[in-house]
Amino acid sequence: MNELWPCTLTWAEVDPLRHPFALDDDAAEELARLVAPLVPSPEVVEERRFRAMDPVTELMASRYGRWACGWNWSVGEGDVDGGVVDAWCCAGHTVTTPDATAPLAVAALLEWRDWIEDLAERFSALAPPSRSDASCDVDPWYWERACTRLVTVVADRTRAESAWYGHCKQVLGWFLAYSGIDEERARDIVDASISGRFGSWSSPDVVVVDAVSSRFARTTDEKR
């Protein structure tokens, strides 16, 4: 079920410019009505645990695009470890009655979308001037600054809880893709830069962030 797993999302799949989205109050109520019949019973949640909300995820992804599969990527040890969503804890703790649970799922989707749009704004502000041409020379300072700021904001939003570094790596890869670097090279750059420096339940200190950012800048410059 990788197609429902937000850890595998690419920037092309979440980019707000490619996937416009708006949900006013009426549309949010309609979505909640569609979600409610898909909310499992507590017994099903206990049996299926992390996959109990798959029908809801399938609905949202089919309706709005694959980016929506991150709706329940909550902070800490939720349905998927290491996310940024606070509106949804996990199926085991959040699922009650369908009518009470459905609006929480909608709120979680909106929170996830807000995060993606926030990242797009940050990428625009942090990208080097020549991002439209990945072959152009770029001052490594741009890459270092971007890495420092993105690692810091992801650590803050995830509260550096369980497996937070997975989304951190993803966000850095998204930024490189936004900046014109192909996905395979972006993965190599991020892997080489982080290389076991981050851990669960531990927010990186300034020295570690500086070291990672410096390596990110050098590696990006080398692999472009």
Rank of each mutant, 00 (worst) to 15 (best):
W141Q: 11
E13M: 07
R224A: 07
F175G: 04
H19C: 08
E30Q: 14
V106R: 06
A107K: 15
R113L: 06
L119M: 15
T57P: 01
D118I: 00
V153W: 04
C69G: 01
G196C: 08
T97F: 00
P6Y: 07
R131K: 11
G180D: 02
I194E: 01
D205Y: 13
E46Q: 13
V80G: 00
G180W: 02
L38W: 04
C89T: 14
V212A: 13
G76C: 03
A217D: 06
W88K: 08
T57A: 11
L17H: 13
R218L: 13
S41T: 15
E183R: 15
L150M: 12
A177P: 00
F175V: 02
W71A: 12
G180T: 07
P16G: 08
V212M: 05
Q170P: 02
F50Y: 12
A155R: 07
S203T: 15
S74C: 05
S124C: 06
P129V: 12
W143F: 15
R224H: 04
V56G: 02
Y165A: 11
T101V: 04
S135V: 10
R49H: 08
R187K: 14
D118N: 08
V190N: 06
W5K: 14
P20I: 07
A192Q: 10
T152Q: 09
T219A: 01
M60Q: 10
R48H: 04
G70M: 05
V75W: 02
R187G: 04
D81R: 07
W141I: 11
P42C: 07
P204T: 14
R51Y: 08
V190I: 05
S62H: 11
T219H: 05
S195P: 00
S135G: 10
L150T: 12
E111A: 11
T220D: 00
N72Y: 00
T10Y: 00
N2H: 13
S213I: 14
T8Q: 10
A22L: 07
P98Y: 02
R48T: 06
E43M: 08
D137I: 11
D182A: 12
P6H: 10
A102W: 01
D79V: 08
A108M: 02
A160N: 02
P6M: 10
A87F: 01
A127D: 00
L110W: 00
L126M: 03
C89F: 10
S62G: 15
L4T: 06
D137L: 14
V56M: 10
T96Y: 00
I189S: 01
R18E: 01
T10Q: 06
C90D: 14
C90F: 02
D54A: 13
S203M: 14
